[in-house]
Amino acid sequence: MVWPYKTVLMVGCTAGLGVAMAERMIEHGSFVIAVGRRKDRLDAFASKHGADKVATSQFDITDLDGIKPWAQG
């Protein structure tokens, strides 16, 4: 599969489908900005894949009022 995106922002990267999708993106050569609520799991994800493939940001995407400040941050 040819994946045209070089950088992707993935939410929910601390468990389940979010992790699986982020890992698939990495396999296809994308740099992943992984977002999730659990810092320890984000750190483990980044450690597993390396800083050349992953950046992390701890944030709870259900905090609707916090999305704009987080995105500008």
Rank of each mutant, 00 (worst) to 15 (best):
M1W: 07
M1I: 14
M1N: 03
V2E: 09
V2D: 08
W3Y: 14
W3R: 00
W3S: 06
P4H: 04
P4D: 10
P4C: 10
Y5D: 14
Y5A: 13
K6C: 13
T7N: 14
V8C: 15
L9D: 06
L9Y: 14
L9P: 02
L9W: 08
M10W: 00
V11K: 04
V11D: 02
C13E: 03
C13R: 02
T14C: 13
G16F: 06
L17P: 02
G18L: 05
G18Y: 10
V19P: 00
V19F: 00
V19C: 05
V19K: 07
A20V: 04
A20P: 00
M21A: 12
M21E: 03
A22S: 11
E23D: 04
R24I: 01
M25F: 15
M25R: 10
I26H: 00
I26P: 00
E27W: 01
E27N: 09
H28G: 13
H28M: 07
H28S: 09
H28V: 10
G29S: 12
S30W: 07
S30G: 07
F31H: 15
V32E: 06
V32D: 07
V32F: 00
V32P: 02
I33M: 06
V35H: 09
G36T: 03
G36L: 10
R37Q: 11
R38F: 05
R38Q: 07
R38Y: 02
R38D: 12
K39D: 12
R41F: 05
L42P: 04
A44N: 04
F45T: 00
A46V: 00
S47D: 08
S47Q: 10
K48D: 01
K48E: 08
K48L: 01
H49L: 02
G50L: 04
A51M: 03
A51Y: 00
A51F: 04
D52R: 12
D52G: 08
K53Y: 01
A55Y: 06
A55I: 05
A55D: 14
A55C: 06
T56A: 08
T56C: 10
T56I: 15
S57H: 15
Q58P: 09
Q58L: 01
Q58D: 13
Q58R: 15
F59H: 15
F59R: 08
D60G: 04
D60C: 14
I61W: 03
T62I: 14
T62M: 14
D63W: 05
D63L: 09
L64G: 09
L64P: 02
G66T: 15
G66K: 09
G66N: 13
I67K: 11
I67Q: 13
I67T: 00
P69T: 12
W70Q: 13
W70Y: 15
W70V: 04
G73L: 08
G73D: 08
G73I: 06
G73W: 07
